[in-house]
Simulated assay, not measured.
Amino acid sequence: MKTSFKSSENLRFLIFTILFIAALVNLGTDVANAQPKGIKNIVLVHGAFADGSGWKPVYDILVKKGYQVSIVQNPLTSLKADVDATNSVINRQDGKVILVGHSWGGTVITEAGINEKVAALVYVAAFMPDKGETTGKWVAAAPAAPEAGFTAPDQYGFVYFDPAKFRGGFAGDLSQAQSDFMDVSQVPIIGKCFEEPVKQAAWKNKPSYGIIATQDKALNPSTERNMYERAKAKITEIKGSHVIFISQPEAVAEVIIKAATELQ
């Protein structure tokens, strides 16, 4: 009986050791799988009438895949202020960066993208002006959709997306409740931002990717295409509204990941 007891204890110890080693191997595999290939740092830049929290669905996907994601909160008071805010975040990264901009954020990353840490630019239903051009030029490049509209600048110079048109023009493929909340929490932009010319265009010297939101009512999809094609960006069409990064986060994240992995 004594010998049998020792044999059982030894067997249990052996089994425990095998299971423990297997767990460590699996843990190592999981850690390895969580490390993204290529560039690991992603910086996301929001546009007008929104803030950085809108990027959360894309953020969740990228972080789960092991990327280091940072989100800029633009002041929306001038192009320089937004470029400065973006560069502040870029400079905190520990290596090369994929810089992503939505809408007005595209104008911001066009200038901030000259930062030496930026390896590539991703435009999400975004403006992509050239040196000397204003965002306003491209706002007016095609007739505005009936669903779109901005308020006149208030006494402080701030412009809002017309609340009466917000859902149809800005967030048509989100739920009514989500759209309503985004409307009442929208971040206004100083109207003169759209009149400020871009001083440098990073896309001329760095790889660029452009996402066309095919159901965009705030920025005409044909205008998006014209800017992207001029810049020779790699273009992806995704069915969705202007806030496609919220309604189609998986598809948007896929383009960002493509940019990161192609530049490893």
Rank of each mutant, 00 (worst) to 15 (best):
P36F: 08
Y228I: 08
E196Q: 15
E229V: 13
S70K: 15
L14D: 11
A218N: 08
P146C: 08
A213G: 03
Q35G: 01
A171C: 12
E147G: 09
E196F: 01
T86C: 10
A141T: 05
K117Y: 05
W138S: 00
V198C: 04
Q200L: 11
P146E: 09
D154C: 08
I18C: 11
T107F: 00
E229H: 08
V139Y: 02
I90C: 07
V255G: 00
K165I: 05
L11T: 14
K2E: 14
F5D: 14
G54R: 10
R230S: 10
N87L: 04
F150D: 06
V89F: 07
L219Y: 08
F194T: 13
V69S: 07
F170Y: 14
N226L: 14
T110F: 00
T151A: 10
F158C: 03
I71D: 07
S179F: 02
E133V: 02
P249Y: 03
G52K: 12
T3E: 13
M227S: 11
R92Y: 04
D183T: 14
F161E: 07
L79N: 06
I21N: 08
A141Y: 12
P143E: 14
I257T: 12
A50R: 10
G169L: 02
S4G: 01
L44Q: 03
N10R: 14
L19H: 01
S103G: 14
W203P: 01
P197V: 07
I211C: 02
P75Q: 09
A259S: 13
D183W: 01
P153H: 10
H102P: 08
Q264K: 15
G95F: 02
E111C: 04
I42K: 05
G149M: 05
A48K: 00
A141S: 15
K165T: 06
T223P: 02
A50P: 00
E195Q: 15
T77V: 11
F194L: 14
K6H: 11
T214L: 06
T17R: 12
L79H: 09
L76F: 03
G66F: 12
A251T: 10
K56I: 11
D216M: 08
P249H: 04
I71N: 05
F150Y: 12
I90S: 07
F166T: 06
R225G: 02
V243N: 04
Q93Y: 01
V139L: 14
G191W: 04
A213D: 05
V97S: 02
E133Y: 03
P207V: 05
T107G: 09
F20H: 03
S70N: 14
D173E: 14
P153D: 09
T214S: 12
A81P: 04
I246K: 02
L14P: 00
P75R: 06
V100L: 12
A119L: 04
L62F: 03
N33R: 15
W55A: 09
N74Q: 12
K40G: 02
D154P: 08
Q200V: 13
A148W: 04
T29R: 15
G149A: 06
I61V: 14
S53K: 13
P249G: 03
V187W: 01
G106D: 11
I109R: 00
K137I: 05
V31W: 15
I246A: 09
N10F: 11
N91M: 03
N226T: 15
H46A: 13
Y209L: 08
P146F: 07
F161D: 08
G101R: 05
